[in-house]
Protein backbone atom coordinates (compact mmCIF):
# COMPACT_ATOMS: atom_id res chain seq x y z
CA UNK A 1 0.00 0.00 0.00
CA UNK A 2 1.45 3.33 -1.09
CA UNK A 3 1.02 5.27 2.15
CA UNK A 4 3.22 6.45 5.02
CA UNK A 5 0.44 5.70 7.48
CA UNK A 6 -1.69 2.84 6.14
CA UNK A 7 -0.72 -0.83 5.99
CA UNK A 8 -2.52 -3.85 4.56
CA UNK A 9 -3.85 -6.25 7.19
CA UNK A 10 -2.78 -6.57 10.82
CA UNK A 11 0.19 -4.62 12.15
CA UNK A 12 3.02 -7.01 12.94
CA UNK A 13 4.36 -6.88 16.48
CA UNK A 14 7.98 -6.59 15.35
CA UNK A 15 7.20 -2.98 14.48
CA UNK A 16 7.44 -2.13 18.20
CA UNK A 17 10.95 -3.51 18.73
CA UNK A 18 12.11 -2.24 15.33
CA UNK A 19 10.83 1.26 16.12
CA UNK A 20 12.60 1.30 19.48
CA UNK A 21 15.82 -0.04 17.96
CA UNK A 22 15.79 2.53 15.16
CA UNK A 23 15.75 5.38 17.70
CA UNK A 24 18.58 4.11 19.91
CA UNK A 25 21.06 6.43 18.17
CA UNK A 26 18.94 9.51 18.96
CA UNK A 27 20.43 10.29 22.33
CA UNK A 28 18.28 13.33 23.10
CA UNK A 29 15.24 11.03 23.49
CA UNK A 30 14.34 10.19 27.07
CA UNK A 31 10.90 8.64 26.59
CA UNK A 32 8.90 6.63 24.06
CA UNK A 33 5.16 6.27 24.42
CA UNK A 34 3.50 3.51 22.42
CA UNK A 35 -0.18 2.89 21.79
CA UNK A 36 -1.37 -0.36 20.26
CA UNK A 37 -5.03 -0.68 19.28
CA UNK A 38 -6.18 -4.30 19.33
CA UNK A 39 -9.33 -5.68 17.71
CA UNK A 40 -11.73 -6.77 20.45
CA UNK A 41 -14.18 -9.65 20.13
CA UNK A 42 -17.20 -7.55 21.14
CA UNK A 43 -20.56 -9.31 21.33
CA UNK A 44 -23.23 -7.49 19.32
CA UNK A 45 -26.77 -8.85 19.26
CA UNK A 46 -25.39 -12.10 20.70
CA UNK A 47 -22.87 -12.48 17.88
CA UNK A 48 -19.15 -12.32 18.48
CA UNK A 49 -16.86 -10.15 16.33
CA UNK A 50 -14.21 -12.37 14.72
CA UNK A 51 -12.46 -9.62 12.70
CA UNK A 52 -12.79 -6.05 11.50
CA UNK A 53 -12.52 -5.23 7.81
CA UNK A 54 -11.16 -1.66 7.66
CA UNK A 55 -11.70 0.59 4.65
CA UNK A 56 -10.65 4.19 4.16
CA UNK A 57 -10.64 7.22 1.90
CA UNK A 58 -6.92 6.96 1.33
CA UNK A 59 -6.01 10.36 -0.10
CA UNK A 60 -7.94 12.19 2.62
CA UNK A 61 -6.77 9.79 5.37
CA UNK A 62 -3.11 10.41 4.48
CA UNK A 63 -3.69 14.17 4.57
CA UNK A 64 -5.50 13.96 7.92
CA UNK A 65 -2.74 11.81 9.48
CA UNK A 66 -0.17 14.37 8.34
CA UNK A 67 -2.26 17.27 9.70
CA UNK A 68 -2.57 15.54 13.08
CA UNK A 69 1.17 14.91 13.15
CA UNK A 70 1.95 18.55 12.30
CA UNK A 71 -0.51 19.84 14.87
CA UNK A 72 0.90 17.63 17.65
CA UNK A 73 4.47 18.63 16.79
CA UNK A 74 3.47 22.29 16.99
CA UNK A 75 1.78 21.80 20.33
CA UNK A 76 4.42 19.69 22.10
CA UNK A 77 7.85 21.25 21.74
CA UNK A 78 9.73 18.41 23.46
CA UNK A 79 8.68 15.85 20.81
CA UNK A 80 11.37 14.39 18.58
CA UNK A 81 9.60 11.64 16.58
CA UNK A 82 6.18 10.29 15.79
CA UNK A 83 5.19 7.25 13.77
CA UNK A 84 1.62 6.19 12.99
CA UNK A 85 0.40 3.03 11.28
CA UNK A 86 -3.25 2.03 10.78
CA UNK A 87 -4.53 -1.15 9.18
CA UNK A 88 -6.67 -1.38 6.08
CA UNK A 89 -8.35 -4.70 5.22
CA UNK A 90 -9.09 -7.56 7.57
CA UNK A 91 -7.66 -7.68 11.09
CA UNK A 92 -8.67 -10.58 13.33
CA UNK A 93 -9.72 -10.23 16.98
CA UNK A 94 -6.54 -10.17 19.06
CA UNK A 95 -4.48 -8.60 16.28
CA UNK A 96 -3.21 -5.00 16.18
CA UNK A 97 -4.86 -2.40 13.93
CA UNK A 98 -3.34 0.87 15.19
CA UNK A 99 0.22 1.73 16.19
CA UNK A 100 1.24 5.15 17.51
CA UNK A 101 4.83 5.70 18.58
CA UNK A 102 5.84 9.03 20.11
CA UNK A 103 9.29 10.01 21.36
CA UNK A 104 10.26 13.03 23.40
CA UNK A 105 12.97 14.32 25.69
CA UNK A 106 10.90 13.71 28.80
CA UNK A 107 7.97 11.45 29.65
CA UNK A 108 5.09 13.89 30.21
CA UNK A 109 4.90 15.14 26.63
CA UNK A 110 5.30 11.61 25.24
CA UNK A 111 2.29 10.42 27.30
CA UNK A 112 0.12 13.43 26.45
CA UNK A 113 1.01 13.60 22.76
CA UNK A 114 0.41 9.87 22.30
CA UNK A 115 -3.05 10.02 23.89
CA UNK A 116 -4.07 13.13 21.97
CA UNK A 117 -2.86 11.63 18.69
CA UNK A 118 -4.92 8.46 19.20
CA UNK A 119 -8.03 10.51 20.02
CA UNK A 120 -7.55 12.70 16.94
CA UNK A 121 -7.08 9.66 14.69
CA UNK A 122 -10.38 8.23 15.90
CA UNK A 123 -12.19 11.57 15.42
CA UNK A 124 -10.68 12.95 12.22
CA UNK A 125 -9.36 10.24 9.93
CA UNK A 126 -11.81 8.80 7.36
CA UNK A 127 -11.55 5.12 8.23
CA UNK A 128 -14.46 2.71 8.64
CA UNK A 129 -14.68 -0.79 10.02
CA UNK A 130 -17.01 -3.65 9.25
CA UNK A 131 -17.29 -5.95 12.26
CA UNK A 132 -17.42 -9.46 10.83
CA UNK A 133 -19.26 -12.22 12.68
CA UNK A 134 -18.82 -16.00 12.49
CA UNK A 135 -22.04 -16.47 10.51
CA UNK A 136 -20.75 -14.20 7.70
CA UNK A 137 -23.01 -11.28 8.67
CA UNK A 138 -21.51 -7.94 9.67
CA UNK A 139 -22.12 -4.65 11.42
CA UNK A 140 -20.63 -1.22 10.69
CA UNK A 141 -18.46 -0.30 13.67
CA UNK A 142 -19.21 2.89 15.63
CA UNK A 143 -16.55 4.56 17.77
CA UNK A 144 -17.58 5.32 21.33
Amino acid sequence: MNSKFLVSGAIQLEIVTKSIASHSNKLNIGAHSVFLGQVRNDVINRKKVRAIDYSCYQEMADKQFQKIKDMIFNKYNDLTCMHIKHSVGQVKAGEISLFVFVSSGHRIQAFKACEETVNLIKDEVPIWGKELFDDNTYNWKENK
Binding site: Y57, H86, V125, W128, N143
Partner: peptide, 9 residues
Amino acid sequence: ALLPPFAGG
Protein backbone atom coordinates in the same frame (compact mmCIF):
# COMPACT_ATOMS: atom_id res chain seq x y z
CA ALA B 1 -17.20 12.45 -0.66
CA LEU B 2 -20.00 11.31 1.64
CA LEU B 3 -18.37 10.25 4.89
CA PRO B 4 -20.28 8.29 7.53
CA PRO B 5 -19.01 8.59 11.15
CA PHE B 6 -15.36 7.57 11.33
CA ALA B 7 -14.51 4.33 13.10
CA GLY B 8 -10.76 3.98 12.96
CA GLY B 9 -8.58 2.69 15.77
